[in-house]
């Protein structure tokens, strides 16, 4: 934490207590989830935990259903993110650079999937999949997740583009670089951190998504779906917690990294190369 000379008046004790209470309310459940991952009691959650063990990590790692769900989630998240990086960047470049009929409408339509309730996107995709008789597969999941992954990439990259002078592209062309060279040497370095941040957010969103997944997965089980099923049919309860700890880690780290990467863009884009 930096000390800031321009602070306002100090908060009173009541406000501090309320703020602390709010923080605890939000985060104690997370801590309890982590705590139960180390509980030696397999059938039910008791507090305080009867004994401390790390064996569930080994058990979770050995279980084929966990491995399958984890593998599927990682592959879907990675592929949806990759698709979103390409399509989101192209869309934001088009909206930034050109003036065409329906530009604002397209901008709205791209952002819509994240504004709409996931259940709407889910039902819409499900009926589309049914009508076209596409079998549920890895790719239906990827398409479902890409709809909202594109949004975060699009927003991040568009925000960066809007702070980038269009004259940079002209300067590059003026100095002899063709389109591809300009992309490689000027555009990509300038939007690199926005791509990284957007990509990590997209990955985190996809990795723990439940609603759209439910409608596009068919019989497949991603990690969040697997966890839901474990709540109903518990076996080795702490294994679920181990997986939860893993999910927390996988989603938390990119979000924090994205936050720090975009917080002070000038430093970041200046410090590379």
């Amino acid at each position: 934490m930096r000390s800031d000379a321009r602070r306002g008046p100090r908060a009173g004790i009541a406000l501090k207590t309320a703020a602390l209470g709010g923080m605890l309310f939000l985060h104690i459940p997370l801590l309890i989830i982590v705590l139960y991952a180390f509980s030696s009691e397999a059938r039910s959650f008791t507090f305080p935990i009867p004994g401390f063990t790390t064996k569930w990590f080994a058990v979770a790692f050995e279980r084929q259903d966990v491995r399958d769900a984890l593998g599927l989630s990682l592959r879907v998240a990675a592929t949806a993110t990759a698709v979103a990086l390409v399509l989101g960047t192209l869309a934001s470049a088009a909206v930034w650079k050109s003036r065409f009929f329906g530009r604002d409408a397209i901008s709205l339509l791209i952002v819509l999937p994240i504004a709409l309730p996931g259940i709407i996107t889910g039902i819409a995709l499900r009926s589309a999949i049914a009508i076209t008789e596409i079998p549920f597969s890895f790719w239906t999941l990827v398409i479902g997740h890409a709809t909202f992954c594109i949004v975060v990439v699009y927003n991040n990259v568009l925000a960066r583009f809007r702070r980038t002078s269009g004259a940079l592209i002209e300067a590059s062309m003026d100095l002899g670089a063709n389109g591809l060279q300009t992309l490689r040497y000027v555009i990509l370095p300038n939007i690199a951190t926005a791509l990284l941040a957007g990509g990590m957010l997209a990955f985190a969103l996809s990795f723990d998504e439940v609603i759209v997944t439910t409608f596009t997965a068919g019989q497949q089980s991603t990690l969040p779906i697997w966890m839901l099923s474990q709540l109903l049919r518990p076996r080795d309860r702490p294994v679920t917690n181990v997986v939860a700890v893993f999910v927390i880690a996988v989603t938390f780290i990119p979000i924090i990294a994205a936050f720090y990467l975009t917080r002070d863009t000038h430093d970041v884009s200046g410090s590379q190369k």
Binding site: L168, E170, M173, N178, N190, H266
Partner: peptide, 21 residues
């Protein structure tokens, strides 16, 4: 003829220096 094939160069109004270089 595209800009990158012309034997002219430009000094831009806002300089347009590449900020990452």
């Amino acid at each position: 003829v595209p800009p990158y094939e012309r034997d002219v160069n430009t000094v831009f109004q806002d300089y347009a220096l590449f900020p990452h270089m």
